[in-house]
């Protein structure tokens, strides 16, 4: 008898339906936030040459030269054929820290690897120049590593803020 009583269902409290409604409202808010975030990081339709022109216009590239993609592979371990577009301005001499890399991604999932490669290069250059290349170290500490939509930019050089805003504006 006692066992039967123990197993008997009792009515569900009405407030539980309010909790249920509020709970799914919170979940819906999360989904909306997710969609809005996605919308703000959608791929840019601006062409590669256009973005390249925008960032190189403000960048100080006097101490750099446009290099072939083998150097990008060597210094960044990035294979240009895996991307929709890439350009690399490398330092003219070993004493130069100025450089610029612009990559158009094939998909957003590549951004993490590109940012890792950018950061690794900056870390490596910093350890090379630390202690004797004061100007270079300063430039490297202010370097721009930025991914927005389907473009990733690395820039080491003067007017870094201006180059970054030109990059964002161009997308």
């Amino acid at each position: 008898m006692r066992e039967t009583r123990k197993r008997r269902k009792t009515p569900v409290a009405p407030w539980i339906y309010v909790v249920e409604a509020l709970k799914w409202a919170a979940f819906a808010a999360l989904i909306i936030m997710l969609i809005l975030t996605k919308a703000s990081t959608r791929p840019s339709k601006t062409g590669f040459d256009e973005v390249k022109a925008a960032v190189t216009k403000d960048a100080d590239l006097d101490n750099t030269k446009e290099s072939d993609m083998l150097l990008l592979k060597r210094f960044y371990s990035l294979d240009s054929s895996e991307y929709d577009g890439a350009v690399y301005y490398s330092p003219k001499t070993n004493m130069g820290a100025e450089e610029l890399v612009l990559i158009r991604l094939k998909d957003a999932g590549q951004s993490e690897a590109v940012m890792e490669a950018y950061n690794a290069r900056i870390r490596n250059q910093l350890s090379s120049f630390e202690g004797y290349g004061v100007d270079q170290t300063e430039l490297l500490k202010n370097a721009v590593c930025d991914c927005a939509g389907n473009y990733c930019l690395l820039y080491v050089g003067a007017r870094a803020d201006k180059v970054q805003s030109a990059f964002r504006k161009a997308l």
Partner: peptide, 9 residues
């Protein structure tokens, strides 16, 4: 929001 969702659950 995720915390509130799970708190209610």
């Amino acid at each position: 929001f995720a915390s509130l969702f799970n708190y209610a659950s």
